[in-house]
Design a protein around this nucleic acid. Structure first.
Lengths: 213, 213, 213, 213
DNA sequence: TATGAATGAGGTTTCATTCAT
DNA sequence: CATGAATGAAACCTCATTCAT
């Protein structure tokens, strides 16, 4: 349970909790967290703003919960087999493309919540707990496994560094285009999201396999 | 002249204009635009907040000017020979490293103002005029020139796409690490900024030269 | 039974009643009635705030009960022989000293509850019923008895007035020093409470026996 | 200038300052400081509540100013010769009566503001600066002078203690009757305020002159 | 019955902006 | 022209009290 969240005993209050989060998510589609007032959230959720304060310590306490929500949504999405990668049967390039496409699709799916999280992470980093770090660690592990699997093909010598670089790269490069799609410049990239994912995969592939004589 | 800026006829008011922007820049080092009040800006600038409204239509009108300021600072920096690249005498890889390092250094230099611009671009895109697009165009041109120059070495077939991809890539990938340095996760990238720049250059180099059979 | 109190039929609810009052008393040690919320009282008492409303009409209804509680505590204290005065065996001055010391001790004992009552009496006099008046009457009677007993020694001619003056005096003069001990100025009175009581007794003794030619 | 007060440069703002204080004083006639909202003060003063925050750091910052106001009002009153005591030409008893009557009259004059100060001193002592102490000191000096002047008549041996006791006594004993006149019990003291002052003077006189063999 | 849930009304404070000197 | 003064609108939050389980 995120910090600042007040445990809900009854079913009614759990519903309220959900309704509030759903309202927040809804509102985040059109404005930033800062520009959404507690009253607004309450209104959309169909409860009074005082009720929000029964479930959350204060407005900021919604943020970690938003974070949790994003995580849960992502896990659901992963579980539903959208994110299956069988390293055994696929080339390195294919794997990278697969990953890039999955990342893009998932980011599209969670566009609004990710926008909020991204802005908040840049604006109010102090409101994020350290759960962030555990996600980071797990991601890094996955990249290490992938690199080990394609060891022969990869020319990078410092494998740990390569894992870190890839993790940074994949977690950074899509957000601008996918999440801030409507607001940020597109640099004449008039290709669809799938093709974009492939381009990105090419960066990663090139990085891993280039001749570094 | 940015929109919302009121032309300053007299020298005194030009100074006021400068003082206000300097104050804003100063304040952006410690908090976000949203968290800086007009009164505060006036105080640091040594003028009253009402005076600000004689130079700017409203608080938001500062943003395009901030943007201009960043541009001017960058141009100064470029002019001062920090950003000289002689394509003739240098390998593709060397050129990319050079560019990456320059980008990093320049971002470090303008860290605070870039943070503000980045957040605002994500939060209030409507406040940015279309000058953005002309920068975008010029950047794209530069990449096209570079790609043409190393044509033989580059395996990418769609040169225009490659230019766009590189432009997107270089304008996106550094910000997280350099500008949001203190707030965002570093994915175990325990290398210094120069080495980081080189890693990034490797992505670009790999992308441009990989065997795409 | 104080007004606003809902009669408690069952033993369980009597205990709840007690627990609530004990909680209030406890909380009054650190903050004023106004600053104590119903939720807080409930929490300390170990019941929900809704339960409080089953025992009391509203928050204010606690006040008369607080008053009762103070009375009961005082009576207990008196019964336990702390307050025994045998007029027969003691001088007027001795009697006054005795009374002053008793008053001081009792005020110390009930410091917190008396602080609450004092502030509330000044702030919300309408919340006190008229039971106050019966206490007043009884006190006055006692002073009349004392004055009658030492008739010869006393130079005051208007005995009724003397009784009233003494009653007012003794009921007023200690509170500032004893009850608001930590908050109010002490006028350089660097003596202990017992010596203070004696000083006060001297005022009363002087008043009663001075040469009023 | 009291802490939390923002200096007023223009005449208009000084007027606003005055209007706000006058409004507060007015409102204190019917309710306690705690029960008066900032909005209310603004309304009565004829300004918006935001304006109050231009002159005062916050609501609490009004309190020291209230304190100042009381002091200034008192000084004015004293200067207007209401409080003249010529020790040379008057008996000890006469002097004490004079003082008691003056105290009573002055308290009547400042009844409402004194009620507020008294309640606040008991409720929020932390909001009072240490100016209190300097007043205390001066009062003590005056009593020492008086005692020295009537040295022969006075039977008390510890003169310093006597001064402290009198200071405490005179600063405590009137408030209940005069300031909380309408709310507190009167113990059958059916005499007018002047006669009441005389009774009180008798306590002091008796204290100072009693036979302490 | 007891209580967790819910809320309406209200409180203090901030701030971008306009007014008046 | 520059600025101190003023403000309307809105923000977050609290709490005594009622509702519904």
């Amino acid at each position: 349970m995120s910090q600042g969240t007040i445990p809900a005993r009854q079913r009614r209050s759990q519903q309220t909790h959900k309704k509030l989060l759903a309202a927040l998510e809804q509102l985040l589609k059109t404005k930033s967290f800062h520009d959404i007032s507690v009253a607004e959230i309450g209104k959309v959720a169909g409860v009074s703003s005082a009720t929000l304060y029964r479930r959350f310590k204060n407005k900021n306490a919604l943020i970690p919960v938003l974070f949790d929500l994003q995580k849960r949504q992502m896990e659901q999405w992963v579980d539903s087999n959208h994110a299956n990668i069988e390293l055994g049967t696929i080339s390195l390039k294919g794997a990278l493309q697969r990953i890039a496409r999955i990342a893009v699709r998932q980011l599209i799916e969670q566009r609004h919540i990710m926008k909020a999280i991204s802005v908040l992470a840049h604006t109010r980093p102090e409101l994020f707990g350290d759960e962030w770090q555990s996600r980071e660690k797990r991601t890094l592990e996955i990249w290490k496994i992938l690199i080990a699997h394609y060891e022969n093909e990869i020319t990078r010598t410092d494998k740990a560094l390569a894992a870190s670089s890839l993790a940074y790269f994949f977690n950074t490069i899509f957000v601008e285009r996918i999440v801030f799609h409507d607001t940020s410049s597109n640099w004449g990239l008039d290709i669809d999201d799938e093709a974009f994912a492939d381009e990105i995969a090419d960066f990663a592939y090139g990085y891993l396999t280039a001749n570094n004589q």
